[in-house]
Simulated assay, not measured.
Amino acid sequence: MTTVVGDVYDAERLREVVAEARPDVVMHQLTDLATRDFAANSRIRREGTRNLVDAALAAGVRRIVSQSIAWAYEPGSTPATESTPLDLHAPDATRRATVEAVATLEAITAEAPEWVVLRYGMLYGPDTWYTKGALMADLATTANLPTGPDITSFLHIDDAATAAAAALTWPTGPVNIVDNDPAPASTWTPTFAQSVGAPPPKPTPSSNATAPHPTTPADSGAADSGAADSGAADGGAAAGQTAGGGTADNAAAGGPTAGAVPGEADAARTPWARGASNAYAHSLGWSPTHPTWRTGFTS
């Protein structure tokens, strides 16, 4: 395999890089979150995706696999499925800007003859924000981790990688890639705090307080400058930077996410913080090796 480095914001050079690599597939895992600059991350979703997809199509690439997120769905009372509309009319301007950038990324990806959008859950594991010494561990250590009713669907970084590989042969369309155990912060934060050696979290006074929602590992490397590592081999994939509702009983059994959102009353929950269903991914033959954060945080 040959590794080629290019700047995703340099459209002309990026076309040259992808053309020289001659990939069969382009895997878009670009982010810009090392400094928690969400505007920069939205820019890479819009402009970076545009340039990368244009370069791929110009090189004759038929299949593109792109990273998206599983918490951009509109409000609801059950875990979101792939057919749930995105929250494009969110009243909060910051959230609306994020969702609009996600929708742009997905629409541009869909210009390819074959495409898969991987809507990842909240990533945890090595080199993510949910590990010792990283952002969420620091919040836990200083007792600043919100513990309200908002639902999160998690995903271990290793399971994100297996889904990306499987997506090379999946049918066109979006796929939720999350574990089997969506849970309110009041449920998962004690386990997370214990896993990073932090004290038990204090209850959150505000019913709508929610933890930050990063989309990728904090150590996002080349994403800081919008650089894309494009590796290709015969029959291989050119890649942008790589990223490397169920109940507890259902998760422990390894079953797909289904049913109502667990946790406290919907009235107390941020409406869009509903979790996501992985039933479709299970039907495609994928299942997380870390089916629940309950054991994943400590593995």
Rank of each mutant, 00 (worst) to 15 (best):
V65G: 06
R62I: 02
G235C: 03
G246W: 14
G125L: 05
F297R: 03
L30Q: 14
G255F: 14
G254M: 07
L33K: 01
G197F: 00
Y280F: 06
R50C: 02
A267T: 01
L139T: 10
E82P: 03
G236T: 10
G231W: 09
D249K: 14
P200R: 10
Y130V: 14
D32H: 15
V102W: 12
G236P: 10
K202S: 15
D7H: 06
N180C: 15
W71E: 05
E12A: 15
G245M: 11
S42L: 04
L168E: 14
N51C: 01
G221S: 10
A103G: 11
N208L: 15
Y120D: 06
H89E: 09
L52N: 00
W293R: 01
E47F: 01
D54N: 09
R119Y: 06
S207I: 09
S186H: 15
G76L: 09
S225K: 12
T128F: 01
A238R: 04
D24E: 14
S77G: 13
P205T: 00
P126I: 01
A198E: 04
P212E: 10
A237G: 02
S195E: 06
P23Y: 11
G254V: 08
A258K: 02
V117Y: 11
G285A: 03
A260W: 13
A209Y: 14
D179C: 04
S186V: 13
G246Q: 14
E100I: 03
G254P: 02
T270G: 09
G259I: 07
S225F: 15
Y124W: 02
I44D: 03
P205G: 10
P174E: 05
H89S: 10
P126L: 09
A253I: 04
P174C: 07
K202C: 06
A101L: 03
P113F: 12
I44K: 01
P291E: 00
A185F: 08
A239W: 15
G240Y: 10
H282L: 05
D24Q: 09
Q67A: 15
N278K: 06
G285D: 08
I64L: 04
A80H: 10
L135C: 00
A227H: 05
A163K: 02
H89V: 07
G60L: 04
A107L: 05
E111K: 12
T289P: 04
F38M: 11
S299C: 00
V61P: 02
Y124M: 04
A253P: 06
P23Q: 11
M136C: 00
A222P: 11
A34R: 12
L88V: 02
G240M: 14
G121M: 03
P201C: 12
S283K: 09
P214S: 04
E264Q: 12
L145C: 06
D266S: 12
A112M: 07
A251H: 12
A112D: 14
P201R: 00
R95H: 09
W170F: 00
T2I: 07
A185R: 05
S153K: 05
P79M: 08
T242F: 15
V117R: 05
A279K: 11
G173S: 05
Y120C: 01
T247A: 04
L33S: 07
A164R: 09
G148N: 01
R15C: 12
W115L: 08
V17S: 05
G254A: 02
T292F: 10
W71T: 13
R269Q: 10
G240V: 00
T3L: 15
E264I: 01
S220E: 11
M136Q: 07
R43I: 01
V17N: 07
G226K: 12
A21V: 02
